[in-house]
Nucleic acid binder design. Structure first.
Lengths: 236, 236
DNA sequence: TGTACATCAGTGAACGCGCGTTCACTGATGTAC
DNA sequence: TGTACATCAGTGAACGCGCGTTCACTGATGTAC
């Protein structure tokens, strides 16, 4: 069908625009995104881009949603790639490694999600929020499974939460249909925040002057937070 | 002396420029900084600003250095404000609380230090690096003291480090003249990364959909990482 | 296979805007005697 | 206290630039019969 060819060409050009946009952001920072520059690089006049995106903001929104989706896809793939009889803690550990690896390979996407907002632009939260939950869900699910099967021991500190926190997290869990205690969710958030802190610091160059290559430290930290039920840290 | 009056007026105007710059960044993001807009707000023509800063980049550099210094000053003041017989773990806990409080009160400064770099600008690292060390030093010093006096117990996971990490951190410590084991430095970095992760996520709105007010969780997390030597968590 | 029509991709000119920075200058504020 | 001079603060005009977006348009690609 000829119209199918046309549609694919359209999608291809759309992808090309996004790729150039990402490259531009990678070189100049996420706040630097110029439609005219993209058009120039494509050998096309600026108004041509409006066939593909209604405005600069729409392009940014597309990039952000892509980033969320790509991260979630990657994490789900990592989860599903593990063979059925895998050590569940090892699988969790691998997911944490993959999380950082993704951030290092896709620094622009990572910044679009977790970095400074772009001046004059504000993301439509009704679109980004479900996309954001997907990634967190992978970690919650894997942690829940590891805890239920007894592979992972919930650290003592997370067994009893402050009442206010317990309530709040319990509400979230009920809404999402997870069958884990609130303490476990707190634990997942704690792991997530650790990864986030280390990755953000690394990405913006704050760890390198102290640590050289932050890789060893990251592995060490994740291993230490993922204690096995037998008391041994996860593989590092 | 008349020249002194003039100097003070000059310094005052300089401060006014920086204040307006920070406000502008607060409203539009750190990447949005326009000299012309500042001049407009001051009721002055744009070239007038060149009496105070040689360029836009120089203004940004000044803002960044101010941010580093203000954070370090705040942390040092928190450390020194504690009465002599204070519980050393409580003092450390208070410092961690103050770290977040500073970030929330000065989001622009926090982003200038820890957020995305500004497009087309690159900070002179020979100036920012010593300023960055000051803040970390406060935490290293307080932790060292708490460990030495036996108020704080180094978590078991930090007693033995991977060889590569041990070496690297030992080198840093020797260079700075601290008398704590490398594991303790790793522990400080771990605490720092946790704070960083939680604060960054909060500042960019990623925790609120899950936690509502992240305050309780932050206190809980810091308390759990600062275990007393007697096994009880720090005051929350 | 060929023709009439509809859709889509891209053009070229223009609008209105804001930006950092330079330059030669005026007028005010300070200093020295 | 008054005058001659130096320094500093701020002006006004201009340079050269880039930006997002609109509009009426041409030419190519597809569809229907």
């Amino acid at each position: 069908l000829a119209s199918e060819r046309r549609r694919q060409r359209h999608a291809g050009t759309e992808e090309e625009i996004k790729t150039l946009a990402r490259r531009q952001m990678g070189e100049q920072g996420t706040a630097s995104l110029s439609l005219r520059t993209i058009a120039r690089e494509m050998g096309v006049t600026p108004p041509a881009l409006y066939r593909y995106f209604a405005s600069r903001d729409d392009l940014i929104t597309a990039l952000i949603l892509d980033a969320y989706d790509d991260l979630a896809d990657t994490m789900e793939a990592t989860r599903d790639a593990a063979p059925a009889e895998t050590d569940l803690v090892a699988r969790l550990f691998a997911a944490c490694m993959e999380y950082r690896a993704w951030a290092l390979v896709h620094p622009v996407d990572y910044q679009l999600i977790f970095g400074n907002p772009i001046p004059g632009y504000s993301a439509p939260s009704e679109a980004t929020q479900p996309a954001a939950r997907r990634t967190l869900s992978v970690f919650v699910g894997m942690t829940a499974e590891a805890l239920q099967r007894g592979a992972l021991a919930l650290p003592a500190a997370y067994e009893v939460l402050p009442g206010e926190l317990e309530e709040r997290l319990g509400g979230i869990l009920a809404g999402e249909g997870y069958e884990i205690p609130a303490g476990a969710l707190a634990y997942v958030l704690a792991v997530w925040a650790r990864m986030q802190g280390l990755i953000t610091l690394e990405l913006f160059g704050h760890l390198q002057p102290i640590l050289g290559d932050p890789d060893v430290f990251y592995r060490f930290e994740i291993a230490s937070v993922l204690q096995r039920a037998d008391g041994h840290p996860a593989d590092a």
